[in-house]
Structures are given as structure tokens and as C-alpha cells.
């Protein structure tokens, strides 16, 4: 098991829990989708996992990870290559990662923008920079917060290929997304979250069983669970 989360309560201010009773695992070679509406607590859960949420009561077990943030985080005064070079220096793997960096730059068609400031890039290109940084080094775990945001169809296809490769190599991937159609196709399991709590988790089949709808899509399941939750 690579990710093991057991959070009783978590939030930004004392006595004001944004998330509660969040408990799940992500195994090696597994891609798990974290699904929820806006403000459901997905990003807060991810922050708690990375240890940057101010108040967390619970336990988080996680190894070194590659991370794609919800919105691109870029340094205003570094060029694209300087971001990559900085990452390699921090990781202390300057020589071994250069080849991988060039490979990813080619995959995402950013090899001609090496000496430009990425803050001047379009949203999609900035997202590609985030993907390059996240996939530069080999990690046992990947945390991807809305990785498809702003990507063009070609880049999306390449990202899916990379995710397949990482899974095959045994990485545990937790992906928060609103792209339910895509998530349905590529994720092994789902964690449906609303109002800071887990509504249901499991494979697509087990979720269909839970809502008693044989051929329901992930969106249908999520809708049904949300309605039930709001009625309760």
C-alpha cells in the first residue's frame, strides 16, 4: 500500500472542520479518482495528504510524490528550463533526469519555449509545465489535482498514456477531477466526496450496486448519491 489516509477532522481554522472522516487507501499500480462538486473538499483532502493543511487530526502515510496542483504554480522570474533545472538540482539528480526532461518537453511540445517565462504561457501550456515537473522524477505516488484542466486533446491523450505507463510501473496515483467521462474510463476505483465527507468509494461496479443502477455512468451514480445525501 502506498497511500493510507485516515483523517478524523481537517480544516484551516480550529473547530471548523472542512473535511471529516476521510479514510481510504491507494495501492501500488492503482489509479484512484477523487470525485466531488466544487467546494466538496477534494483539494483540502489533497492538502491534508501533503501536510500543508493547517489543522489535521488523523494519520497520513505517503511516500515521496509527484504533484500537479489545482492551478499552475510557477516562479515569475524563472524560465521554463530554469524550473526544470531547479527541480533537478533540488532532487540532486541533475544528470540522470536531463534525458527524461527533454523527452517530456518533446511529448508536450514545449521544447521550443525553453528560455521563455512560463508565466507568459497560455493556461494549457502552464498546465503542461506542471505535468512535466510532476513526471520528471520517478515516484511511488502521484497526486494530481485536476490534471486535465486546460489541456488540448493531444496533450490529454499523452497524459493518459503517461498515467498508464506509471500504473504499469507500480505507481499509486490519486487524481482529483471533474472530467467524469475520462475518469470513468481510466480509474480503477473512485472516492466520491461531498461536504467534506466520503459518500461512497469503490470500483464502478460496486458503486452501481450501491445505487442499484446496473448501467449507470459515474455521473449518474454521483448525482444519485448527492441527491440522497442532500435528502438526508
Amino acid at each position: 500500500m502506498t497511500i493510507d489516509i485516515n483523517i478524523h477532522k481537517g480544516g484551516y481554522v480550529e473547530n471548523e472542520a472542512i473535511i471529516s472522516n476521510i479514510q481510504f487507501q491507494v495501492n501500488s499500480g492503482e489509479l484512484v479518482g477523487l470525485i466531488g462538486s466544487n467546494g466538496a473538499g477534494k483539494s483540502t483532502t489533497l492538502q491534508a495528504m501533503m501536510g500543508v493543511l493547517p489543522i489535521v487530526d488523523g494519520q497520513v502515510t505517503i511516500g515521496t510524490y509527484g504533484y500537479v496542483p489545482e492551478r499552475p504554480i510557477l516562479y515569475e522570474y524563472f524560465t521554463l528550463w530554469e524550473h526544470i533545472d531547479f527541480y533537478m538540482c533540488v532532487a540532486g539528480k541533475e544528470n540522470s533526469l536531463t534525458h527524461r526532461a527533454n523527452e517530456l518537453l518533446k511529448i508536450f511540445h514545449l521544447d521550443h519555449k525553453l528560455h521563455d517565462y512560463p508565466t507568459t504561457f497560455s493556461k494549457g501550456m502552464q498546465q503542461k509545465v506542471m505535468l512535466i515537473l510532476a513526471f520528471l522524477d520517478k515516484h511511488s505516488t502521484y497526486i494530481l489535482d485536476e490534471p486535465f484542466m486546460g489541456l488540448d486533446p493531444q496533450a490529454m491523450r499523452k497524459l493518459l498514456t503517461i498515467l498508464e505507463e506509471l500504473k504499469a510501473q507500480g505507481a499509486a496515483i490519486l487524481m482529483s477531477t471533474h472530467a467524469l467521462d475520462t475518469a470513468e474510463k481510466i480509474c480503477d476505483r473512485f472516492i466520491l466526496i461531498d461536504d467534506g465527507r466520503i459518500l461512497q468509494q469503490g470500483t464502478l461496479e460496486s458503486l452501481r450496486l450501491a445505487v442499484k443502477q446496473d448501467k449507470a455512468s459515474l455521473l449518474d451514480i454521483f448525482d444519485t448519491l448527492l441527491e440522497e445525501n442532500h435528502h438526508d
Partner: peptide
């Protein structure tokens, strides 16, 4: 921090060249 208006650095160490040879001086 304010976002630079230029697309790329124009002064010194452009083309992403390093200032320090030592990689631990990142």
C-alpha cells in the same frame, strides 16, 4: 510578486544559463 512583462529574460544569463556552477547552490 509582480509578473514580469517580458516574455523571456533579456539581460545577462538569458537562455537559462546558470549563475553558479555548483548545483547545490540552487
Amino acid at each position: 510578486q509582480l509578473v514580469p512583462k517580458l516574455k523571456k529574460p533579456r539581460l545577462l544569463w538569458k537562455n537559462s544559463k546558470r549563475m553558479f556552477r555548483r548545483s547545490d547552490y540552487f
